[in-house]
Structure formats: structure tokens, C-alpha cells
Design a protein around this nucleic acid. Structure first.
Length: 920
RNA sequence: GCAGAAAUGGUGGAAUGGUAGACACGAGGGACUUAAAAUCCCUUGGCCUUUAUCGGCUGUGUGGGUUCGAGUCCCACUUUCUGUACCA
């Protein structure tokens, strides 16, 4: 019988479903292993062939671990809140829940066809009230917590209140927005409202006036990782800066731990590096410059304390609070005009233009080391959000200061020996200091590194400032002016935010008449009727962002039906954290930071027992599309084949890859594809129309989308799984090319044929050759899966089948072992074999074959013999022969004479089992 | 600019410092067939030699280095991809 993938795959998928083969239970007697995929956002377009790549890899790994005897948790769910469903709702008036529901159903049917071992009984959806109850719950815990910098962990806000009541702000070190100083008496005299407002400065989930990325077209704010090059990641609309009152998460408090704990996880270097850069630790000094004639001190942050003798001016960010204080009456007009100009420039314009601009405030600062007066300027190249929003400018050794100094003709003083600053600044932190001597401090002759250390020490000793570590990581903005997200369990009384009672959870998302903002600019929830508490207080109208629901979903899978806790103690202590996480690297600065933050917060509260959520992480590469082109001769309806296109004046046109096979166009299908092409003419080469190709993003508009359903229909899920792995290393981005799939399909057919022959044979011992082929395979596959090298595994299967075929092997035992080995890769065909071999249960539970090194031991070893490093011939020596015997055999070989050409070798190197190299 | 990764046939890609190009696609040739599809077999980095075999030279982005021996390690450079950017 021929290999009939349709029949086999249908049969075993039903078998798995009926017998609940992939249902997982906590089992204290077995070691756990948690394999997780980043759950998908169910978009309307459905899955294309690139999406399942990571799922297939993780499925192979989980099936392998399961066969090795681990209790494997391998769940799947949906990141169901998101903009596209809402945008669609705005256009059609359809509730996003409905489209989301439909898309999920489509995803599920597509996923089911591929034969994954997901435990669907643990499915989660972020938009399900049973799920988002716990998202809201976590928010409440953050609202009720502050971060204690001394204890380095989150603490109940009640503890902070008690401290304020007893001692005021002294003697406690909470992470905060602004450093506030007050006494217990002052605190106790505050009104309820004032106390609440002040506490916002400390809560981990807090409300604050912050500069946000505002996207007018989307009508919402966006997080930093949702903006790229001044445009929104979703939709590509311009984004501007705006000061707004928003919910935020104090992620910045966790910056040191997020950075340090990267050492504890097995992630790729590049990913760790991306996170390190995003967190952006920089060690420097914060110091104060007095302002001449004013009772104001200008506080600045610098990493180059050594360059203090080269400070020739100061610069303030336009938004800095100092601007108003330091602008003199004479300059007030000019400064006002400049601020107005900057305000109207969007982030994007600022980035594209990168024009040097600025204005003088009229005030002068005093360099505390030299006593010299230096002008204070305002410019938009200084950011309000980083450091103190003010800098000391050292034009000789900072390229931005240099450009500014050149533009406004300010002095440039070089501080490093040999640095030529006539054309550009010298930014490198190396060389010997010059021009750096004042009454109290002399840096001349020191190396930059030592000069920085010495200056820092001096600053602290003299009380000019303090050593400080700054982080670039911003707090996460947690409000979205949208409908399709989790509502905040927050209401407003007397204009201040109060948490609802936990018993109100889940706070359900109410229906609205329209998904657009209200006339007075309120978010869509402003339209909801009765959006008030039972007492009549208005409820928050913003919703939470996408990353809210995706930050702790891995915990919910451990205990998905628990309506008393986010996760029970028992479930958490058994499953602990994710052993292997597979997903795209594009989440490096978003989800993977937020998730780590969220987990650490829950860890501080004692809810979870592991400080890092994802132990090992593998980034699967993107599958790009392979677009095919036809070449239309200009102003005609004639198309010329790729090889002949140079002879004509042509326009390349993208053509649907589904009517092209091995770059040969199906001309009939092409005529039917579009009415315009119905009477197309073709200029062929060798009777064929050959298309050109290019690698591009896989998308509908490029006509290069390949649907996994079509592949499964034609070749079967096992072929799809093997082929996706065979394409190349999982971590690498590569184009999808359906052309190669026949090879993998042929392999499965060969395996099928081999099995059918072996199946009929009575059981007998494997021959030595068969044992060798089989054990070589066990060794290779076991190593490859551990190393996530699935492309070479597939090749190894092909080699083994070819070897057994040429041995004319029909051994049942050999086939039984291969069945167990291939089960993670091609579970359907393996399950079929497993049952035909008379086994019961599922091959998913079949023990992983044990490798016997003795099977690979040879009587003789083949040695390549090299002369001066170049291989010339081969000899065979008994295995285990001592070096000098191998050497003797090599030199005694007839072929050796030719290469020695009468000379005696200077040296002979024998590497046992590897090579003999003769140096002449 | 900075950081990370990478560069191997027509293509996707293999190679614990030890026979470069596994495996597969494509291509070429052949077998079977009335024919096609399917299947099977052979060849396939380049160059040279030979009727053919045998054989030789060369070859992993560029230039150096370490080593008996380098695709692999070190230094410099070029290019590509990814991330990030007035972060002081």
C-alpha cells in the first residue's frame, strides 16, 4: 500500500483527541519540563507557513523530553487583545470579540492539522474574563506596592504609609518619580486627597504626568517599543510627544535586577545584549553647577567627569524646569519662540532633520573647578527624560556638543594629548589628560580612566555632587485610550484614583455603541452606559495595553482553571518556570522585559518561586517569502521568460507563487489569474516560462504567501514538519521555498516502503551493519535535538534510510527503533508504525532509544594520510593500534614512497582515530 | 554612530582545529513506459590532463598571523542582515 498521509493523519489525530494523549497532570514522581511557545495574536489573515516554525521546533523538543520520561507541560493559547480587531470593529461595527472568536477558530483548525502535542485543556485567552481577572488582580497588587531600594524588593504600600506617619520621608529609600522630603507631621497634616496624590509618587502601578508617545491617527499612547523611527509599529502613523496623565508601571525600579539577572538565564548573547542596551546602565556622577547671580544650582549628569575642565557651556532640555528659572528678561522673547518651534516639531521631524538648533538663556553657570562663567543654552538635542534634563557640554570630546559649539561659535578646549579637534570631536575614552589643572584638582598626565575615578572621588569629597548610576530603561506606560483591552479596576472619587474591591473582579469590559473616541475626546469606554461603581463613582475609561495580558500567561498555564488564585502554590512549585521558551527576537525589548519585570514583582510578593520566568530561550528566525516575477514587455500584454528579458524593455510584475512551480510559470493558470492577463502572450525559453525571484517579507501584497493548509493537503503534516526543520537552523531567518519539499516527501515514502517490507518479517537480530546504522542514528538524533539542530537530524534520517535500503534490510527491530526516533518529528507516521508493530498506547510515550557505543566500534580504522597537511591517500589500521604502529603502516604503504620522494620525514603526527600527518 | 550575528557550489545548507561541500533541491545523462506522471540509477565547486579510468592543480568575502595542519583560532579590512540611537 502506498503512503496515504491523509488517512494516517486523520486517524491518529482522532486517536490523540479521543484518548487525551497530550493532557498533562502534575505528577510529583516525575521530573517536570516546561516547553512554551510565544502565544500568537490571532490575526484575520490566518497562519502562513512561517508561523509554525517555532511551534514545530518546540513540539519536537517536548515530544523528545516526554519520551525521555519527563512530565512535559506544553500549552498553547491566544494573545487575543490587539489593535487590528479593534480597527476592524471601527470599520464594520462588529464587536471585536466576534472577530477574535472567528480568528481563533481558524487558527485552531490550522494548528490542529499540523499534529502538535499541545495540552489544549489548558488553553488561555487574554480576553477571557476568567483570564483577565488575574491581569487586573496583578495590577491591583502593583498599585498597592512600592519598591524599596534598600531591600531591593517590592513592599506593601501600607508599610510606606506607616513609615511616613511615624518618621516622614527620612530613613526609607523607596523608588519614586521625584525625591520628596517631608516630616511625619507634614504628612499627617495632609488631606486624604493629598496623601493619595503623594503616594502616586511611590506606587509600582502609578498615575503620572509623563511625556508619552501620542499617535493621533490611532488615538492612543504607545510604549517605546511600539514606536520605531518616530512611527507606530502597527500602522506606521506618525507619533508625537505629549504630556499626559497616564497609568504607568515602575519598571525602572527593577532596572538593576533586570540587568544583573541576565547572567542567570541561558539566552543568546545577542538577545542579552539587546536587553542590556535597552536597560542602558551608565555609571557617572551627578553634580551641581552654581548659577551666577542667582540662588539656583544646575544639576547635571555626566559619565565623563574627567572632562570638567573642558566644559565651555551648559545645555538644558526645552522641557526642563530650569528653563523658566534661568531665562533672563532680555532673552525671554527668543527662548519663548524657540520653545514654540520645538513643540510643533514631531519626534519624526526632529530625527529626520537632526538640525542643530538652540537659544541662549542669558544666564551663566560657574564651573566649580575653575570658577569660570559659562553660558547656559537651551536645545532639543538634550532630552528631558534622561538624567536631569541638563548637561555640561564638552565640545572637544562629544560629537553632539561639538556640532552645537561649531554652529553657535562657542569655544572648544581639547583635554586629551594629541587629540585633533579642528574637524571633529575626539570621543574615545583613551589618552593622557592635558589642560586639566585647577586650584584644587590636577588631572594632567593621567589616563582618562584614572582621571574619571579621581574626579568622581573629588566631587564626592568636596560635596559638589555624588556618584550615580543611571538607567535608560523608562517606566512602562500602561494606559491605552482604546476599547479592546482589560478595563482598570479603578474608580475616581474627588478626582483621585481608588482601587475597587477584589470581589469586583473580573471587571467586565462593557458593551459600547461605537468603538471610536467620544466627541469630547474620551476613549471609547466613555460611551459605555452605567460605567460607574454601585456608589456612582466613575470608572477609569482607559484600558490596559497588549503586554498586560501577555506578561504572566506562562504562570496561568500551570493552573488555568483556578478561580481563587493566579496560580496555586502547589502548581507553581511543581512547574516553577519555563525550561524552554521559543519565540521571535522582536520581543526582546517589549514582552521579554515586561514579563521579567512582572515575574520579579510576583516573586517579591511570594506568589511565584522563581525569579526568572524563562530559563532557556531560543529565537526562531523569520521565514521570509520567495516572490516570483514575470516580465511584461512595456506597453504590451506579452511576457518574456527570465533568461530572455534583457533583450526587451520590460517591467517586472509579482506573480502568485501558487501558480509557479520550480520557477516555471503555469501559463494557463496565469491567464485565469487576472482578467487583464486573459489573453497574455508568452515568449518562452526551451518551451517553458521561467520566472525570476526575490526574497521579501511574506505578505499578501507580494503574492508570496504559502498557506500551511495547502501543504498539509498535498503532502501531509509530517512532510511539512520535516521540511520546515530541514530548511535550515531554527534560529536563522531564511526564505520559504516550496521547491525543495519533494525531497522530504520522497524520504517519507521510502521510509514507508522500508517499513512495509520489515513489518512482514519475523523478529530477528540486527546484523552488525544494521546495528551500526541504527546506533549511529540514535547518537546523532539525541545530540541534535539537545542542540536544537533539527535540520541535520532530518538529514541523518535520510542517510539512515538510504543505508538500510542499500543493506536490503528488512529488520523489524531496526524499524522499531527508527519509529521511536522519528516520533517527535513525524508523529503521525510514527504512530501508524507503532500500532502496526503491535504496540499499544501512543508512540508519544515510547521510551527514547538507548545508544550503545559498542555498536559503532570497528575492527579497523581508516586513516587519511597527509603530507605537510594535505591528504594524499588512506590506510587502514587495527582499531586501538598504538601510534607508532599506525605510523609504521602509513610509511610502509606503497603510496607513501611517491610523496616522500626519497626524503626522510622530519616529523610524523598521529592523532588516534583521526589523521596521520607526515612533515617532510 | 554604537552593539550583535553572519559571509562556504546554480539554490537551501553540512563540517568536536584533522578527507571542505554531508543531506536536499535544481540541472544534465540514462533505465522503465506507446507517451506522460511516478519510480530507480549515474554525473554535478572550478580548472587541467586522459578515449575513459587513474591522476593533478585550485578552492570556504579580502589581507596578514598562530599551527605539522585553519571554513573553524587571533589581528585588520570589506560587505550583508538584525537591533538601537541626540541616553551626555
Amino acid at each position: 500500500m502506498d503512503y496515504n498521509h491523509k488517512e494516517i493523519e486523520k486517524r491518529w489525530q482522532e486517536f490523540w483527541r479521543e484518548n487525551e494523549v497530550y493532557k498533562t497532570h502534575e505528577d510529583k514522581d516525575r521530573k517536570k519540563f516546561y516547553v512554551l511557545d510565544m502565544f500568537p495574536y490571532p490575526s484575520g489573515a490566518g497562519l502562513h507557513v512561517g508561523h509554525p516554525l517555532g511551534y514545530i521546533a518546540s513540539d519536537i523538543y517536548s515530544r523528545f523530553k516526554r519520551q525521555q520520561g519527563f512530565n512535559v507541560l506544553h500549552p498553547m493559547g491566544y494573545d487575543a487583545y490587539g489593535l487590528p480587531a479593534e480597527q476592524y470593529a471601527i470599520q464594520t461595527g462588529q464587536h471585536p470579540e466576534k472577530t477574535t472568536e472567528e480568528n481563533i477558530a481558524r487558527y485552531r483548525s490550522q494548528l490542529d492539522k499540523i499534529g502538535f502535542s499541545f495540552d489544549w485543556s489548558r488553553e488561555v485567552r487574554t480576553c477571557d474574563p476568567k483570564y483577565y481577572k488575574w491581569t487586573q488582580w496583578a495590577f491591583m497588587q502593583m498599585f498597592n506596592s512600592y519598591y524599596d531600594r534598600d531591600l531591593k524588593k517590592a513592599q506593601p504600600i501600607s508599610k510606606l504609609i506607616k513609615h511616613f506617619e511615624e518618621q516622614g520621608s527620612v530613613g526609607i529609600n523607596p523608588a519614586c518619580g521625584k525625591e520628596l522630603h517631608f516630616t511625619a507631621e507634614e504628612w499627617n497634616n495632609l488631606s486624604e486627597k493629598e496623601k493619595r496624590e503623594r503616594l502616586m509618587n511611590y506606587r509600582i502601578a502609578y498615575q503620572g504626568e509623563t511625556m508619552v508617545n501620542w499617535c493621533p491617527q490611532l488615538g492612543t499612547v504607545l510604549a517605546n517599543d511600539e514606536v520605531s523611527e518616530g512611527l507606530s509599529v502597527r500602522g506606521g502613523y506618525p507619533v508625537e510627544q505629549k504630556l499626559m496623565n497616564q497609568w504607568c508601571l515602575r519598571v525602572s525600579a527593577y532596572a538593576p535586577r533586570l540587568l544583573d539577572d541576565l547572567a542567570k538565564v541561558e539566552w543568546s548573547d545577542s538577545l542579552k545584549e539587546t536587553q542590556r542596551n535597552w536597560i542602558g546602565r551608565s555609571e557617572g556622577a551627578e553634580m551641581r553647577f552654581p548659577v551666577a547671580g542667582k540662588d539656583v544650582e544646575l544639576e547635571i549628569f555626566t559619565t565623563r567627569a574627567d572632562t570638567i575642565f573642558g566644559v565651555t557651556f551648559m545645555v538644558l532640555a526645552p522641557e526642563s524646569k530650569y528653563v523658566e528659572m534661568l531665562t533672563t528678561p532680555e532673552q525671554s522673547e527668543a527662548v519663548k519662540a524657540y520653545l514654540e518651534e520645538v513643540k510643533h516639531k514631531t519626534e519624526r521631524e526632529r530625527q529626520i532633520e537632526k538640525k542643530v538648533s538652540g537659544v541662549f538663556t542669558g544666564s551663566y553657570a560657574v564651573n566649580p573647578l575653575t570658577g569660570k562663567e559659562i553660558p547656559i543654552w537651551v536645545s532639543d538635542y538634550v532630552l528631558a527624560g534622561y538624567g536631569t534634563g541638563a548637561i555640561m557640554a564638552v565640545p572637544a570630546h562629544d560629537s553632539r556638543d561639538y556640532a552645537f559649539a561649531r554652529h553657535f561659535d562657542l569655544p572648544i578646549v581639547p583635554l586629551i594629548e594629541g587629540a585633533d579637534v579642528s574637524e571633529e570631536s575626539f570621543d574615545a575614552k583613551e589618552g593622557k589628560m592635558i589642560n586639566s589643572c585647577g586650584p584644587k584638582l590636577d588631572l594632567n598626565g593621567l589616563e582618562v580612566k584614572d582621571a574619571i575615578a579621581k574626579t568622581k572621588k573629588f566631587i564626592e569629597e568636596e560635596g559638589l555632587g555624588k556618584v550615580k548610576t543611571n538607567y535608560r530603561l523608562r517606566d512602562a506606560i500602561f494606559s491605552r485610550q482604546r476599547y479592546w483591552g482589560e478595563p482598570f479596576p479603578v474608580y475616581y472619587k474627588d478626582g483621585v484614583a481608588y482601587l475597587m474591591d477584589e470581589s469586583a473582579l473580573p471587571l467586565l469590559l462593557p458593551p459600547v455603541s461605537s468603538y471610536l473616541p467620544t466627541e469630547d475626546g474620551q476613549p471609547p469606554l466613555g460611551r459605555a452606559e452605567n460605567w460607574v461603581t454601585p456608589e456612582g463613582y466613575p470608572i477609569e475609561v482607559c484600558t490596559m495595553p497588549g503586554f498586560a495580558g501577555s506578561s504572566a500567561y506562562y504562570l496561568r498555564y500551570m493552573d488555568p482553571h483556578n478561580d481563587k488564585e493566579l496560580v496555586s502554590k502547589e502548581a507553581d512549585e511543581y512547574w516553577r518556570n519555563v525550561d524552554l521558551y521559543v519565540g521571535g527576537a522582536e520581543h526582546a525589548t517589549g514582552h521579554l522585559i515586561y514579563s521579567r519585570f512582572w515575574n520579579k514583582f510576583l516573586y517579591d510578593l511570594g506568589i511565584v518561586c522563581e525569579e526568572e520566568p524563562f530559563k532557556k530561550l531560543v529565537n526562531q528566525g523569520m521565514i521570509q517569502g520567495r516572490t516570483n516575477f514575470v516580465y511584461r514587455i512595456k506597453n504590451t500584454n506579452t511576457f518574456v521568460s527570465h533568461g530572455l528579458r534583457k533583450e526587451y524593455d520590460t517591467t517586472p510584475i509579482r506573480v502568485d507563487v501558487n501558480i509557479v512551480s520550480n520557477d516555471i510559470l503555469d501559463t494557463e493558470a496565469f491567464r485565469k489569474w487576472r482578467p487583464d492577463y486573459a489573453d497574455a502572450e508568452f515568449i518562452l525559453e526551451d518551451g517553458k516560462y521561467v520566472c525570476g525571484y526575490a526574497v521579501e517579507k511574506m505578505s499578501k501584497s507580494m503574492f508570496n504567501v504559502v498557506n500551511p493548509d495547502d501543504i498539509v493537503e498535498k503532502y501531509g503534516a509530517d512532510t511539512l514538519r520535516l521540511y520546515e526543520m530541514f530548511l535550515g537552523p531554527v534560529e536563522q531567518s531564511k526564505p520559504w521555498d516550496t521547491n525543495g519539499i519533494d525531497g522530504v516527501n520522497r524520504f517519507l515514502k521510502k521510509l514507508w516502503g522500508l517499513f512495509e517490507k520489515a513489518e512482514k518479517e519475523p523478529a530477528k537480530e540486527m546484523t552488525k551493519e544494521e546495528r551500526k546504522a541504527v546506533h549511529k542514528l540514535i547518537k546523532k538524533i539525541t545530540e541534535d535535538i539537545e542542540n536544537f539542530s533539527f535540520n541535520t537530524s532530518v538529514a541523518a534520517f535520510m542517510i539512515a534510510v538510504n543505508e538500510l535500503t542499500s543493506l536490503k534490510s528488512t529488520n523489524r527491530e531496526a524499524m522499531e527503533v527508527i519509529t521511536r526516533l522519528i516520533a517527535p518529528f513525524a508523529p503521525h507516521i510514527a504512530e501508524e508504525f507503532w500500532h502496526r508493530l503491535g504496540e499499544t498506547g501512543s508512540v508519544a510515550d515510547a521510551a527514547w532509544p538507548v545508544y550503545d557505543p559498542k555498536a559503532l566500534v570497528e575492527d579497523t580504522v581508516k586513516y587519511p594520510v597527509s603530507f605537510n597537511g594535505k591528504t594524499r591517500f588512506f590506510i587502514e589500521a587495527p582499531s586501538g593500534a598504538p601510534k607508532d604502529e599506525v605510523e609504521k603502516l602509513a610509511l610502509a604503504d606503497a603510496a607513501a614512497e611517491k610523496w616522500l620522494a626519497g626524503k626522510t620525514p622530519k616529523k610524523v603526527i598521529v592523532v588516534p582515530g583521526k589523521i596521520v600527518n607526515v612533515v617532510i
